[in-house]
Design a protein around this nucleic acid. Structure first.
Lengths: 197, 197, 197, 197
DNA sequence: AATGAATGAGATTTCATTCAT
DNA sequence: CATGAATGAAATCTCATTCAT
């Protein structure tokens, strides 16, 4: 949906890329709420007006940061799902601190910036759909039975547990973390085990 | 000659309670980053200076909001864990939108307010410990076996999945939600089922 | 002249003394401009309203601080001028860091608080007059001749040089200090030397 | 891509000069403690935000005021020391009310603004050194003998007495002033007199 | 004799945004 | 492309002072 055609700086500009990367850094280190044009400019070593030249409004900037992160996420997800052991690869991704930190700030962003919310939601849905498709392919018939976990549930569950680990870890809570990781790993193991009998 | 109690605004003041409740509302509706004295004062229908009279610094205010929420959380958790079916009661709590929304903002708060982080972390650890103790009591011997979920892991997992449901729901993502809820409920059912023969 | 009869707390109250002494500390350490009721209250461990109870306005407080300091100054000056070697005793007083620091803040005060200015000026004149009288008594006939220093000039000169030493010392300038002290001491020596044949 | 000059507001801007001159006026008339952005903006007839545009922090503003004053002082000092009668010219400078008033506020500033202190101290030392050099050149061999005043002492003494005259004059104390001025003038006369015999 | 509550003003700073060049 | 200038709004905090109890 976006804020439309008022984007100025060419997509390909090096300055634009510099600004985006500075914005991502600020967002990761100080949170989306601190991601102002001023701070981003300072981080990039540029003047605030230049940031506004490339991203007329703050929403334009935040949206661009989200899109860049989303593209990278897509690539990582593709790679993970295409690997021989997609569940384990995905789980590794979901517990990667630096990636998930950004994802968490993105969620906070979605919660408080109406203009960006829809796009973030759409992207989340797409990622879930792709996981569901991959899980179905990989897990095949093992999805029946009383203990079976539907692929969409699996997607949400892994994401939720991953985020909980990162979020709590960020402020020093560690109890239960080792146990939870172990549990997920055993769960994946059982799922990937050759059907018995 | 008096020895100067440092804290202003008696714990019992009605104005203080009004401010706290306004702050909680703002925090829930607009996020911790919007919880400024001005904004809270407007919500409460008071002058900004009066907010500063009761809570000299913003951290004081945020900390008080957290403490109030924590006390309520403790009470709800106590009640849930004391119920005949603690797992289901806890799960209901964790998927209660309004409560968990506040918990999510609290986590964002912890991420960006050093002064409050330690207290939030300590509270999280305490809540986890209480759940672990209750789970151990309830689940008894069923915690062995390859599929068993250690109580600390269970605590983290339920919290993580609950938060994922609320967070995504908040911005309109619903796919996988029904399945995940179903899965958790079946999981709880298996756990609470009488040990088989 | 003063701000008249609205002083409340009895002159003799211990709380009043506590406030005054706290105010003096703040004034010495942070300057007259920082000497607010709030800061003084904090320094004294009292509530701001209590400070206002004893000193309705900030000028009342500052005036009282000045008066207390002036009384002490008077006492010290009396003692110095009554000593067998009044010039040297006075010079020692004028180069006493802690006393002169307060005197300097008092001058800043006089410069910017109309209500207090007149009283400070009057006190300065009184102190000068007492010094002139003492110098005349001590120096007797030595005040004639081309090199002679009139007593009033001597009073101003010693005060000025003393303040310069303290002021500069406060922010780390020391060059010329030893020489200036030496010069003043020799000057005093010459003055106190028995008239030559 | 630009490398972002940090300083805003070109050194040459007319607005910047206007602000600086307004700040100097406020500082002279109401003291350094009153030199706030608001106050200065009002004096200059500008919006407070514009003052912040040129001087991001209050220290930046105060530092710039000091530097401008210091440059002017340097020029005046140069001129005085280069004159045929450097001692008298310097003494005239030191008793010039408007210049010394600003110097006095600058000292108060140094006392209470850590960030600026070092620069003020360094400048004071430099001015003293230049005076010492000039005095030595002018006074030549007359610096020996029991009554001789070392040049560094002379610098401090003249400054101290000059400041005392201005400071006291500012709040209405005049006694001893004529005598002190006379004494200093005679002192200078003796020093500049051709060596006898 | 003391204190809690309340308030308007102002200080310091950050911010997004607009505009002219 | 890029930047300097300008501005109104708001955030955070400190302040002196008044008033009722």
């Amino acid at each position: 949906m976006a804020t439309a055609p008022r984007r100025v700086g060419a997509e390909s500009s090096a300055t634009r890329a510099l600004i985006l990367s500075a914005a991502e850094t600020v967002m990761r280190e100080e949170g989306y709420a601190a991601t102002s044009t001023r701070r981003v400019a300072k981080q990039a070593g540029l003047k605030p007006s230049l940031v506004h030249y490339y991203f007329p409004t703050t929403d334009d900037l935040l949206l661009a940061v989200f899109r860049k992160g989303a593209e990278e996420s897509d690539a990582w997800l593709d790679e993970a799902l295409a690997s021989p052991d997609p569940l384990r690869a995905l789980w590794k991704l979901l517990t990667d601190t630096s990636r998930t930190e950004l994802a968490l700030e993105t969620m906070a962003l979605a919660n408080h910036r109406k203009a960006i919310r829809a796009e973030i939601a759409a992207h989340s849905e797409r990622m879930r759909a792709r996981q569901v498709e991959a899980f179905t392919r990989v897990l095949g018939g093992k999805l029946a039975g009383p203990e079976a976990c539907p692929p969409a549930a699996l997607s949400l569950i892994l994401a939720g547990i991953g985020r909980a680990l990162i979020m709590e870890g960020a402020f020093g809570v560690e109890s239960g973390h080792a146990e939870a990781k172990g549990y997920v790993e055993r769960m994946i193991e059982r799922m990937m085990a050759p059907a018995k009998g």
